[in-house]
Design a binder for these strands. Structure first.
Length: 257
DNA sequence: ATGTCGGAATTATTCCGA
């Protein structure tokens, strides 16, 4: 079974790009983030044509998450309880025997902004929510854009960015708490010393300058981790193709037995 | 170059968020 995560940065602008990726990679379950549209206009038909059912938690203009799967996802949670006012950022569903969730963690903007403190609180609430929705003995994956760079290895410039947004001890401690609760960073488990990024700013030629961050993750329960066979970041899909503009994030996928 | 995108508000230009 192939599971994947992708912040698409606007599904209307990215639909053809996403469909091409689905045809090539043939994932079984995908968590999308930043779909930037409402549930009413979600393109269910386009996904059905390539063999996917979708569950959605969207909103107008910003944020929004969705789950694509070969079989119909049965939604177990829409939104992070008590934090719905911070945007449509969490969707959990059962897909066959897999417990799955997609999250779009608040950006936080900068350390002095009120959104930074709200981001930390949101991450704490996420940890509580996951305790209820996932179990060590069941295969489960929580994926998404966490907007946290877990270690210096995950940043193109820890020397200068360490301590700045995405790189603070407060964010890292809260991400670490998710791992301590039993979730494994699946890509990192297979590539413990590799530096690779999943996001590059559109500005300044960051992609070609290799100025990126690894902030998109597939976190697996112990049962998922023990079934892990492969995990990759689809860096090639961060490039323009056939004249289509890419997202600023690359997809990340993992194969589970 | 604070250098690019997506989307909305408003009518091709400006803003906001990332």
């Amino acid at each position: 079974m192939r599971v994947a995560t992708w912040n698409v940065n606007g599904l209307r602008a990215r639909l053809d790009f996403v469909l091409a990726w689905l045809r090539e990679r043939q994932p079984d379950v995908v968590g999308l983030q930043e779909i930037k549209l409402t549930d009413e206009i979600f393109p269910h038909d386009a996904f059905a044509e390539v063999g996917y059912r979708a569950a959605t938690h969207g909103q107008k203009s910003w944020n929004g998450v969705a789950i694509l799967a070969r079989e119909t996802p049965e939604v177990t949670q829409r939104g992070l309880p008590g934090h719905e006012g911070f945007g449509a950022r969490l969707l959990a569903a059962r897909v066959g025997e897999l417990d799955f969730a997609t999250v779009y963690v608040p950006n936080g903007k900068h350390l002095e902004h009120e959104d930074f403190a709200r981001k930390l609180t949101w991450l704490e609430a996420l940890a509580e929510q996951l305790e209820q929705g996932f179990h060590a003995s069941r295969p489960g994956v929580i994926c998404g854009d966490f907007n946290v760079c877990p270690s210096g290895l995950d940043s193109w410039n820890e020397a200068e960015l360490g301590g700045a947004i995405f790189h603070t001890p407060q964010e890292r401690q809260r991400f670490e708490a998710l791992l301590s609760a039993g979730f494994s960073d699946l890509w990192r488990k297979l590539h413990p010393d590799r530096q690779a990024f999943s996001w590059w700013d559109y500005r300044g030629g960051a992609f070609h300058r290799k100025q990126g961050l690894r902030i998109d993750f597939l976190l697996g329960t112990p049962a998922a981790r023990s079934a892990l066979q492969a995990a990759e970041i689809d860096r090639g899909w961060r490039k323009k193709r056939d004249g289509l503009t890419p997202s600023d994030h690359a997809p990340v996928w993992a194969d589970l037995a």
